[in-house]
Structure formats: C-alpha cells, structure tokens
Design a protein around this nucleic acid. Sequence first.
DNA 1: TGTACATCAGTGAACGCGCGTTCACTGATGTAC
DNA 2: TGTACATCAGTGAACGCGCGTTCACTGATGTAC
Lengths: 214, 214
Amino acid sequence: MPDELDRAADLDLAPRTRNPWGQGERLRTEILTAAARLISELGSEQALTVRGIARAAGIAPASIYQHFADKTALVRGLLAYDYELLLAAMLAADESVPAADVVGRVRAQMRAYCRFGIDNPGHYRLMLSSRVGRSELGERPQDPLVRLVVEAFERCAAAGCALRQPARRAAITVFVGAHGRVALWHADADETTAEQIVEFVDDLVSLVLADQAC
Amino acid sequence: MPDELDRAADLDLAPRTRNPWGQGERLRTEILTAAARLISELGSEQALTVRGIARAAGIAPASIYQHFADKTALVRGLLAYDYELLLAAMLAADESVPAADVVGRVRAQMRAYCRFGIDNPGHYRLMLSSRVGRSELGERPQDPLVRLVVEAFERCAAAGCALRQPARRAAITVFVGAHGRVALWHADADETTAEQIVEFVDDLVSLVLADQAC
DNA sequence: TGTACATCAGTGAACGCGCGTTCACTGATGTAC
DNA sequence: TGTACATCAGTGAACGCGCGTTCACTGATGTAC
C-alpha cells in the first residue's frame, strides 16, 4: 500500500500525458508554474512543499528530482522566475509613460512594484522575506530593481528636478517605504485598500522631491 | 520505546525541579521564556514547535497543554509578551528625552523601535509577518505603538514644528518606512549596519518635517 | 525490413523524521476527620 | 496524632500525519545493423 495519495490525478481525474521524447525539459517549467500557482493560492512559503508541488503539477514527487537537485534549488528557481516578472512589470510601466515625464516614470515604476506585491502576496513574501535567496556572492536578485529606480531618480535630477536626497538615497527611501507599506498590508496590520497603498507611495515620492520641484 | 528523546534533561543533564504546590502557573511563564529564547536563537517562526519549546523548557511536550489550549494559543501568548516589551522600550526612550524636545522624542521612539527589530529578528518577524496575530475584532497589537508615534508628532505640531504631512499621516509614513528598513535588513537584502538603519529612520523623520521646522 | 538495444520521461513504494495532540498515569503535597 | 483521600504538577507512550528524498523500476520512443 502506498503511504499516501500523491497524484493530482487522483483528485482531478485528468491523468497528465507525458511530454514527447526529447522534451523532458518542459516538465521543469510545468513544475515552476505549479509551484507559482500553489504559492499564489496558499500565500506562504511553508505552503511550498515538494509533495504539494508534485500534486499540483499532476506528477509523482520523485519526478521533481530529475529537474531540481533538492527543494532549495526548486525555490531558487521560482525566485529567479518571480524577479524576472517583477522587473519586467516595472520596466513596462516605465516605458508606458512619455520619456520626458521623468517624475511620472518614477511613480509608474513604483506603482507597478506595489501592484505586484498586492496582487501576488505569496510570491512577494517569498521574494522579500525568504532567507533562501541569499547567494553570498554576486549581486542580489533585487539589485536590478533598485538600479531601475535609481536611474529614474537620476533622470529627474538631470532634468532639473530638485531632490531632497541624492538620487540613490531617494530611490532607497522610496523602495524601502514601498516595501514597508506592502509588507504591513500583507500582515493585515491595517485595512488599507490597494489604491491607498499606491497613494502612500506617491506621497513618498513627493516627500523626496523638493516642495516646488520641476 | 518512546518515539523520541524530547527532554532537555537528556541534553543538559539539569533535570528541572517541579514547581511547588499551588505554583503551577509559573510553568506558563517558563514556557513563554523558553519560546522567546528559541525564536531568538533560531530566528524564524517555523523554529517555534511545541516539541522544541518543551525541549528548551526542560519539560515534556504534553505539559504545555496544561497552560495553552494549542500551539496557536502559545504563539499568541508570545506575541502579546513581545508587544509589551516593544511598547515599553519605546515609552522608555520617549521619557529619556527632555519633554520639551518634541522632535528628539519622536526620534528616540523610532530609534528604540529599530533597535528592537535589529536586536530581536525572530521576535520582530513573528510580530510583523505572522498571520497568527490577526484577531478580527478590537484593536490590533501594534495599534498602541502607532498611537505613541502619532502623539509624538502631534506634540511636534502643537509646539509649532511645521510638518509636511498631518501628524497621523507623518507617523504612519515613518512607521512604515522603519518597518520596511528593518524588514529588508532581516532579509539580508543589504549589508547595512545598525547605525545606518537608525540613520535612515532619522532621515525619514527629517523628510516629514518641513525644511526649516522648529 | 525486422530486431536488438539504448535512451528517454516518469513512477511506486518505501525510508526515517519530527510534528501536534491525547490519555491514562505517577508521585508529591495538602486537607478532613 | 494518624490515616484516607483530594488535589496538584507534570509525564510516558502512543497516535496519525505529511514531509524530503532515494532507488530500482516501467514502458514508450528512438537508433544501429
């Protein structure tokens, strides 16, 4: 007798057809997608179990080990995937604003950041609270995000907007504030709405700008 | 054969003497103290297990259930204890500054807040990331903290310091920013020192004050 | 063309582990008569 | 004063569970000759 029912097939009756010959790598993506779905639904890192992911992907737990050395590797894969998505969202937001509107571009970036955190609590928590991400050497996964915001503030300064803090410092202030706001919202430490959070971050940007900047 | 060695006595050879007749309530505190020690050392909520706490307290796991209905009740007890400590620290900081130095008092409060978060990462994470704390009705455990800071800012306004945001809003800005800073530090998302964190929060307070306030 | 074999995608069953919780108990200390 | 009993603090042993991981395997698809 097996020690447990692990297959999603036993639940949803859709017994997955295996990938064609030579396409085994596809399962790697399927696993990451399933993990992403799981953490979206359950919302916390401890909901991420190898067996749970296997269940969600409709495969046997053992199958995961053909694509990831262990659970840590799997979580790291998910993290990388998530950071790519967030960076892309912030970039897209930046580009959706007329290039000349330097302040608008900062706001757009940070709004995209907040939206991501609000719409994907599980992912966000995994990215910013997990200790799995610490890689020791090289840049941290959130560095590109910060760099983007720093550049946006540098454009502001270059365009003649007076800042009350140097560009890099301003970026970190806003970034840290946005994180604090989203994190507290996750802890449901308050009953703020998504719009209020965006508003908060807008105010933060205003704070960093001198009173009659631009 | 027992399924496990659960007693700390098996580890430290100091086989706890039971509390005297009528003093059974003492164990409740011993359990909370042990839990606090554990989360300080291990640093994360998932290090908080009933068996682990029993081990740290030198008692049998079953003994915990004479004082707490279940694990959730235990964690809630620990949370209440922690919030008391933090509030006391912020109050003490406030009172250590001459009453007339209204801005200094704000800074002192927020510095105490950061110090707590830096010195007690496990506790801090438990308090602000755990979803155990959600009590639905009544005020949230962090409300007294926020109230303290709001009052401090109101004193600033009353003393004639120009604020760039209303007192309540200013308090939330600073509070959220401080949380963001400490939380990111915990995620070791950067290599900041404790002093830099305090500095960051000082700057945040300055940002909220008008340029030539007071 | 058929056939033996290699390669691939994926699995079933088991392992040992630590967890939260329950329940009947033990032995020391107090109380009633 | 002695003794039977109640009350207390705390325990030992077991329960069922889901976890991460391993290992020998299965069956389908390709390749060599």
